[in-house]
Design a binder for these strands. Structure first.
Length: 754
DNA sequence: ACTAGGACGGTCATACTGCG
DNA sequence: CGCAGTATGACCGTCCTAGT
């Protein structure tokens, strides 16, 4: 039996010291720990190296794809994790190393940290990793295959693919129901309105250029997250349906998703308290937060202090210096005196006797004598001196505080009056803008938006007693006992600490006490949910992905949770997509990777259509996009007839391009506003910026924010152009279709192997 | 076209604080 | 003193815009 020590529970002192006392065994640590250090600068890495010194034991990098970004794409920095992995290998040269990952490297670039393979470096064909990389990139899939074969032949590479035999993949397309469609349309319309509103508000309030670009950056990212969430919510009914169907077939359900919406929930809880009327709607909170924090308001007028007079006098040193300047200017010939708008100043200074030395000699400005100096008063504003008796009416009361002469007082009141008018106007503008902002906020509150999908699913599947949640969330919303309203609960209880919640929940699932598990990224580390022969719950798993992860590695990772060795039955995978064009972009990205990993296509080709039909982010996709844009802008004819149109009736096509253009304007692809700097804006107006022209990702992202009807038509048009290109490429025989199986009727050996 | 820079969400490790 | 909960900050991945 080995003792396993969790490094993050241990202090930073020497591991073999008396206080810690670990001489042998296994030390377990996360990649996050590997780069962690205490405040005093002692690092875990150093601690390990110290413990291991001259160590010829074994280092296992499990899930080693975490370090894949050691050699990143040009322009970005290597990640700390990658560097740390490299560092520990260098510092423990005697240690043996295993790289262990379910996903390996989906790209040769991701192999940067595998220095022990001996594929590059001195004594090999490649002096440096970059040389290796360049060759691999040039060689394509074939070269990779050779490397893999070579490694296998040399006995350094063991590949155990868990056969996906028995596993079933199904892509479930979830059409939006009528309520959802309605909601979607309203939301899309609202975002478009909000955009117009923001545009005018930004100009109205005279925003800085940088501030305004900041605003738009936030706008578009919020926009995207918003519709992403809506898409997830749209799939909830389908999840419920699939789940209950699975129960009827005596199966159990695992639901995978990415974002838990915790940030939004926590915010709402801290805002409204822990008892709420209904579940929190992520998209609504998102919108509220965006508008609340970013709606451009014109400048608030400076609050006028109650003792405004003194305040302003003190604040006006500039005014006094101006006077002295004006007075000095009067000494020189008068050529520019009256050109100024100094009517008041002038009349005043002119009536004054010209006493230029009054600063040094304290003399009364009125009687022009310096006698009785103790009774002289100095104006706090113009700094002239006055006899209290010379003034009309004479000043009797010596306040000792700031005092100002009548003319200054007059000016001050004048100034105050002007300021008041100005302030009033400012205030009006401000109030107007504020009113609009509040109106928008209320509008958002009245919008019918879906709830947080995670809470929603749990609720609809019977509450937390039936569903085991394996996520990183700290708390959750639960429908209160009376059936009215919801309450925020922390997920841990008296018996179960925070750290153990996920394990506990998992156990409940594996014991069959709960038949639904919801897993997110956090829960995915080391949690196995397969139909293990040792577990009580051996029902077949139905794995539903509500939301595919960004990268294929993670997707595979998640698939792997329910598909492991020693299982009684292989799971059924249900990949959920809505029928919205914009959402297929996620499929597009993941499909690309899944394809190159061969997980889906090789695993089970009979399991329905390949996902590669959805990979749009390729050179063909770019070409198709350019074609689409040009067609809509009527620069070039469209190569295909748009959906719902007919070539016999050109007016239908015109109508379509018109609508398409309007849609593109509303999501900011066709520029209709002055966002850039002044001189370019006119050129950009009503056009598509060059950089957007080839950006398929952006096209698909923005598409998501359109009403379903036009969204789908545009997307269909895009795919039909795309298909056309693919077909042409295939006809010309230069379509790179990746790895293909070549079937031969006979195979003969030509020569003996060398 | 490509790079730089900023913002956000999510996860995790660590240090701090209050309580029995 | 140990324990649980909270605050903070680093890291990572993703997105967006502006500038060259």
């Amino acid at each position: 039996p080995f003792v396993v020590h969790a490094l993050n529970k241990l202090p930073y002192s020497k591991l073999d010291s008396k206080s810690v006392g670990i001489r042998e065994g296994v030390v377990f640590l996360t990649y996050n720990s590997l780069i962690a250090s205490s405040e005093k600068g002692r690092s875990r890495l150093h601690q390990l190296v110290q413990w291991c010194s001259n160590f010829d034991g074994l280092i296992i990098f499990d899930e080693c794809h975490k370090a894949k970004n050691l050699v990143p794409e040009a322009g970005s920095q290597p990640t700390k994790t990658g560097e740390a992995v490299l560092d520990i290998q260098a510092r423990l040269p005697e240690a043996r190393v295993i790289y262990c990952s379910a996903t390996g490297a989906s790209e040769p670039r991701n192999m940067g940290y595998m220095i022990r393979l001996g594929l590059w470096g001195p004594g090999t064909s490649f002096a440096e990793f970059n040389d290796f990389l360049a060759t691999m990139d040039k060689g394509g899939v074939g070269a990779l295959e050779l490397v893999a074969m070579d490694m296998k032949a040399r006995g350094m590479y063991v590949c155990r693919t868990l056969s996906y035999k028995g596993a079933e993949f199904e892509i479930v397309e979830v059409p939006l129901d009528s309520k959802m469609t309605d909601m979607y349309e309203k939301s899309a319309a609202f975002w478009a309105e909000l955009r117009v509103e923001l545009l005018s508000a930004a100009t109205f309030s005279g925003m800085e250029k940088s501030a305004s670009s900041q605003l738009w950056r936030l706008y578009w990212s919020s926009h995207q997250r918003f519709f992403q969430h809506i898409c997830m919510s749209a799939k909830v009914p389908a999840v419920i349906k699939l789940a209950s169907q699975a129960f009827m077939e005596d199966k159990c359900v695992v639901i995978g998703l990415q974002s838990t919406g915790e940030a939004r929930t926590e915010e709402a809880v801290s805002k409204y308290g822990i008892e709420l009327d209904d579940f929190v709607s992520g998209p609504r909170e998102l919108l509220l937060k965006f508008v609340e924090e970013n709606y451009p308001l014109p400048a608030m007028p400076e609050p006028v202090a109650v003792d405004g007079l003194e305040e302003i006098q003190r604040k006006r040193p500039s005014a006094t210096s101006e006077t002295s300047l004006a007075r000095r200017a009067r000494k020189v010939p008068k050529w520019n005196a009256e050109s100024e708008d100094e009517s008041e100043w002038q009349s005043e200074t002119d009536t004054e006797p010209d006493t230029e030395s009054d600063d040094e000699f304290q003399i009364c400005t009125i009687c022009n004598s310096g006698e009785d100096r103790k009774k002289l008063l100095q104006c706090s504003c113009c700094h002239h001196y006055f006899h209290s008796s010379c003034l009309v009416p004479p000043v009797v009361e010596e306040s000792g505080k700031d005092w100002s002469c009548d003319s200054c007082k007059e000016k001050t009141t004048e100034y105050l009056r002007a300021k008041e008018v100005y302030d009033k106007e400012l205030q009006q503008r401000y109030d107007g803008a504020l009113e609009r902002k509040v109106k928008i906020l209320n509008l958002i509150k009245s919008l019918d938006l879906p709830n947080n999908p995670l809470d929603d699913i749990i609720d609809q599947l019977g509450g937390p007693d039936k569903v085991s949640e394996i996520t990183g969330r700290r708390g959750m919303l639960v429908r209160s006992a009376g059936g009215k309203g919801v309450v925020y609960h922390t997920r841990n209880t008296k018996d179960v600490t925070m750290e153990m919640v996920n394990m506990h929940e998992k156990q409940l699932f594996m014991d069959g006490k709960k038949l639904v598990a919801i897993i997110s990224e956090a829960g995915s580390a080391g949690v196995s949910l397969q139909a293990d022969r040792r577990a009580l719950n051996q029902k077949r798993r139905v794995h539903i992905t509500l939301e595919l992860p960004w990268s294929a590695e993670r997707a595979i990772q998640q698939f792997g949770r329910t598909h492991r060795s020693n299982q009684a039955s292989a799971p059924e995978y249900r990949l959920l997509f809505t029928n919205l064009g914009g959402e297929r972009r996620f499929a597009s990205i993941v499909a690309k990777r899944l394809e190159s990993l061969g997980a889906l296509t090789q695993g089970d080709r009979r399991a329905g259509p390949s996902l590669s039909a959805y990979n749009y982010d390729s050179s063909y996709g770019k070409k198709a996009l350019v074609m689409l844009y040009k067609g809509l802008m009527e620069q070039e004819p469209l190569p295909v007839v748009p959906p719902g149109c007919s070539s016999e009736k050109p007016e239908t096509i015109d109508d379509f391009t018109l609508k398409g253009r309007a849609a593109l304007v509303s999501v900011g692809i066709i520029r209709d506003s002055i966002l850039g700097n002044g001189k370019d804006s006119a050129r950009i107006l009503g056009r598509i910026v060059d950089s957007d022209m080839h950006d398929v990702g952006r096209f698909l992202n923005r598409l998501l924010g359109l009403p379903p009807d036009i969204q789908n038509r545009l997307f269909e048009l895009f795919t039909s152009i795309f298909d056309l290109y693919i077909r042409n490429a295939r006809l010309e025989g230069n379509l790179d279709s990746g790895i293909v199986d070549m079937k031969a009727s006979t195979i003969e050996m030509q020569n003996a192997p060398k």
